[in-house]
Structure formats: C-alpha cells, structure tokens
Simulated assay, not measured.
Amino acid sequence: MRSITKRLAGAALLCALPLAAANAATIGDDGLHKQPWFTITFKDMAEDIQTAAGEGKRLAIVFEQRGCIYCAQMHEKVLSDPEVADYIKANFMVVQYNMFGDEEVIDLDGSELTEKSAARKWGYVFTPTIVFLPEDVADGQSLPQAAVATMPGAFGKWTFLNMFRWVKEKGYESDEHFQKYHARIINELRDQGRLDAE
C-alpha cells in the first residue's frame, strides 16, 4: 500500500512540474523577469490599446529594471500565484517596459521615444510600476493623461489582485475609491476564511 501511495505521489509531482515550469518567470537577456503570458509588441501605445480591446482585455504596462528586488518579488511571490496570474491573463494584455531600455516607444500623442525617455517623460521613477489604460483614448493625450490608474511598487497578493479587479470593474468611474474597494474585499475574504498574509 505504501508503495502505491509513493508512486501516486510521485506521479502527481511529475504531472505538476511541467505546469509549474510553464508558469514560471524566466530572466531575459535584458535582465528582466519574463512571464510566458506577457505580450511582446512594437510598443505603439494606440495600437496596443486597440489590440487589447480586440481581445476583450485592457492594456497594462509594467515598468521594470535589471536587478530590481521588488520586481523579482512581484514575479516570484505574486505573479507565480495561479489565482493572480489566471485573472490577469484572462482580463489584461500586459506589456513590459524596461525603465532604462532603448526600444522604441510611440506615445499616444504620436511622440517617438525610447523606453527610458518615455519613463522620464511620463514621470515613472519606481520599479515595478504598473500603468492601466482605458479601452479607448482621446486624441492628443499622452500616457499619464490617459491612464485610469497607476500602481507604483510591489504589493502583496490581495492589494495587487484587487487593483487589477478594480480597474477591470471600472472602479475609477465610481465613488468607491480603490482603498475602500480593497478594504471591502479584504473584509469579505476574512469572513470567508480565505485571507492569507499580505
């Protein structure tokens, strides 16, 4: 009986390994963590918003940098959680920007920039910083003017996930500020006995 149990446990572990490996972040040549479900684009903001909308999703841009311990924490502790990753994959198209990178970016106002000059222009100085965009944007706006929310820094699972949910539910159009929304969800999770450490 013990032998069968060991074999079943071993088989379960082997079955789980490819799934875990498929969801694991890797390190790219630029030194940034890469999720297999991040979208690689030409970083044309207007085009990316349209592509996301065409897939029934919202565009989220994440700024990271080589050696960022908070970025590593986001990938290893938060984005590795299936509940978080599955929700984001289903509802958002995530495009990664290197805060000190040289890839070309086309702002919503038509300006051609590099990733690092875009970060300076838009005023983003922390990594990770996640910027959330609406489904459509008025002509002539730059990214910060069009953004519906910005999440600077690394947070625990529930703050992180609730920000994505709040944006998806267009909480920014309601009277329920994100902090109130987050507190309400945390209380509901606590009542359900689902709350783990932040």
Results as ranks from 00 to 15, higher is better:
residue 165 R to C: 01
residue 109 D to F: 12
residue 17 L to W: 08
residue 36 P to C: 02
residue 46 A to E: 13
residue 103 E to T: 10
residue 95 V to F: 05
residue 130 I to W: 10
residue 141 Q to L: 15
residue 29 D to L: 01
residue 39 T to R: 09
residue 29 D to N: 12
residue 43 K to G: 02
residue 170 K to W: 00
residue 154 A to D: 03
residue 138 A to F: 08
residue 134 P to Y: 09
residue 4 I to S: 02
residue 179 Q to N: 10
residue 160 F to Y: 15
residue 37 W to Q: 00
residue 139 D to A: 14
residue 96 Q to P: 06
residue 23 N to R: 15
residue 106 I to D: 01
residue 50 Q to Y: 03
residue 3 S to N: 10
residue 90 A to F: 03
residue 114 T to N: 05
residue 138 A to G: 06
residue 12 A to V: 14
residue 159 T to L: 00
residue 195 L to R: 08
residue 11 A to Q: 07
residue 21 A to S: 01
residue 68 C to T: 03
residue 152 P to K: 03
residue 66 R to H: 12
residue 87 Y to G: 07
residue 142 S to D: 15
residue 82 P to N: 10
residue 80 S to Y: 10
residue 4 I to M: 07
residue 5 T to W: 15
residue 97 Y to Q: 07
residue 135 E to D: 14
residue 185 I to W: 02
residue 198 E to H: 08
residue 16 A to Y: 11
residue 104 E to F: 06
residue 83 E to R: 14
residue 117 S to M: 09
residue 137 V to I: 10
residue 127 T to A: 06
residue 6 K to V: 15
residue 35 Q to T: 00
residue 194 R to A: 11
residue 47 E to Q: 14
residue 75 H to R: 01
residue 197 A to N: 09
residue 137 V to D: 03
residue 124 Y to E: 01
residue 64 E to I: 05
residue 58 R to Y: 14
residue 56 G to K: 04
residue 74 M to S: 11
residue 24 A to S: 14
residue 5 T to G: 04
residue 145 Q to C: 01
residue 154 A to P: 00
residue 49 I to N: 04
residue 136 D to W: 14
residue 190 R to T: 14
residue 181 Y to V: 01
residue 191 D to W: 05
residue 123 G to C: 03
residue 172 Y to G: 02
residue 17 L to K: 03
residue 31 G to V: 08
residue 84 V to N: 13
residue 134 P to V: 07
residue 46 A to G: 14
residue 103 E to L: 08
residue 84 V to K: 09
residue 152 P to Q: 06
residue 40 I to V: 09
residue 65 Q to I: 10
residue 194 R to E: 10
residue 171 G to S: 02
residue 148 V to R: 00
residue 138 A to K: 15
residue 83 E to Y: 15
residue 147 A to Q: 05
residue 55 E to T: 05
residue 99 M to I: 09
residue 41 T to G: 02
residue 164 F to C: 08
residue 110 G to R: 01
residue 167 V to F: 04
residue 94 V to C: 09
residue 95 V to G: 12
residue 155 F to P: 14
residue 180 K to R: 09
residue 95 V to N: 11
residue 48 D to N: 12
residue 107 D to L: 03
residue 135 E to H: 15
residue 34 K to M: 11
residue 145 Q to P: 04
residue 198 E to W: 15
residue 148 V to H: 00
residue 151 M to C: 02
residue 87 Y to N: 05
residue 3 S to I: 13
